[in-house]
C-alpha cells in the first residue's frame, strides 16, 4: 500500500490554489506595507495610518474565503478530526509559552504534520492551531489573523519541501524550522513595528521614508527587540525536530496510512455466488 501512503489529506483544488495565491499576495502586502508603500503614498500620513486597519479587516475575510474553499472540496470527516486533534496538540505545545511572543514549540509539530500530510493540510492546520490556541489561552486580538496567516504559510511551506528520507529529511526539516521560525518572527514584528516602535526613536517607522531607509530601521528594531525571542524559538524547534522528528514523523505517517485518505472504493457488480468463489 505504498500508493495510499502518498495520498495527501487535503487536496487543493484549482480554485482553492488561486484564492490561496491571491490571499497570500494581499497577506504579504498586509505584513510588509510599511516597506512596500510608495514614498508618495507613505508621506500622506493620514492615509498611511489607515493601511494597517484596512488589513486587519481584510485578512480575516480572505482567510475565511480560502479556508472555506479548501474545506468545500476536500475536508472530509477524517481530515477534520485529524486537524482538530493535531490543533489541540499544537495548542498544548503553545500553552506553556503564552502571550504574543514565546518559545512556541508548536512549529515543530506543525512542520512535521505539513511534511507528512501535505501542504493543503499544513496550511489549514497552521490557521486552525493558532486560532484554537488563542481561544484556549484567551489571546484573541487584532494580531490573530496575522499569526494565523503566518503559521498557515509555515505549514504550507513544510508540505512543499523536497523529497528526502532518513537523516537527510530530518536535516532539511530542522533547517526549514530555523529559517521558517525566524521569518515568522520577523513578519509578525514587521506587522507590529509601526505601532510598537512609536515615532520618536531612530528605528521607528518613518512614513514616506522609502524602502531602504525603513528596511534599515526595521532590521534594527527586529535585532534589538525580538531576536532574543526569535532565535531561541528557532533553535528549540530545530532541536525538537532532531530529537523527536523520526518517531513523530513515523506516528503521523502511520496515522495517515490508517486513516486511508481518499479511499479507493470498488463495487463488484458480479452476482454474489460468483464472488464467493474467488
Amino acid at each position: 500500500m505504498r500508493a495510499a501512503s502518498r495520498r495527501v489529506a487535503v487536496r487543493l483544488t484549482m480554485r482553492a490554489s488561486v484564492l490561496l495565491g491571491a490571499a497570500s499576495i494581499v497577506g504579504l502586502a498586509a505584513f510588509g506595507w510599511p516597506l512596500l508603500i510608495h514614498a508618495r503614498a507613505g508621506a500622506n500620513v493620514a492615509h498611511a495610518a489607515d493601511a494597517p486597519w484596512i488589513f486587519v479587516a481584510l485578512i480575516p475575510l480572505l482567510l475565511a474565503i480560502v479556508l472555506g474553499e479548501i474545506a468545500e472540496g476536500s475536508l472530509d470527516a477524517k481530515a477534520v478530526a485529524l486537524l482538530g486533534i493535531l490543533a489541540a496538540c499544537c495548542a498544548a505545545l503553545r500553552v506553556p509559552s503564552p502571550g504574543v511572543a514565546g518559545l512556541e514549540p508548536m512549529f515543530f509539530l506543525l512542520i512535521c504534520s505539513g511534511r507528512v500530510l501535505g501542504r493543503g493540510f499544513g496550511f489549514v492546520l497552521g490557521a486552525t492551531a493558532l486560532f484554537a490556541s488563542s481561544l484556549i489561552t484567551g489571546g484573541v486580538g487584532p494580531w490573530l489573523p496575522f499569526q494565523m496567516l503566518g503559521a498557515a504559510w509555515l505549514g504550507f511551506g513544510a508540505g512543499c519541501l523536497p523529497r528526502a528520507i532518513g537523516r537527510r529529511e530530518i536535516a532539511i526539516l530542522a533547517a526549514y524550522a530555523v529559517v521558517a521560525s525566524l521569518l515568522y518572527g520577523a513578519l509578525l514584528n514587521l506587522w507590529f513595528w509601526p505601532f510598537g516602535a512609536g515615532t520618536t526613536t531612530s528605528f521607528s517607522y518613518l512614513p514616506g521614508g522609502g524602502l531602504l531607509e525603513n528596511l534599515h530601521r526595521f532590521v534594527f528594531f527586529d535585532l534589538t527587540t525580538s531576536l532574543g525571542f526569535d532565535i531561541p524559538r528557532a533553535v528549540t524547534n530545530a532541536v525538537l525536530i532532531v530529537a523527536l522528528g523520526r518517531p513523530v514523523l513515523g506516528a503521523l505517517r502511520r496515522a495517515s496510512r490508517r486513516a486511508v485518505f481518499d479511499p479507493v472504493v470498488a463495487f463488484d457488480d458480479a452476482a454474489p455466488t460468483s464472488s464467493a468463489d474467488l
Binding site: A4, A77, V260, P263, V264, V265, A266, F267, P272
Partner: peptide
C-alpha cells in the same frame, strides 16, 4: 465500510 475504509464490496 467501504466508503471510509476503502476496499472492494460485492453484493
Amino acid at each position: 465500510v467501504p466508503h471510509a475504509t476503502g476496499g472492494r464490496l460485492a453484493g
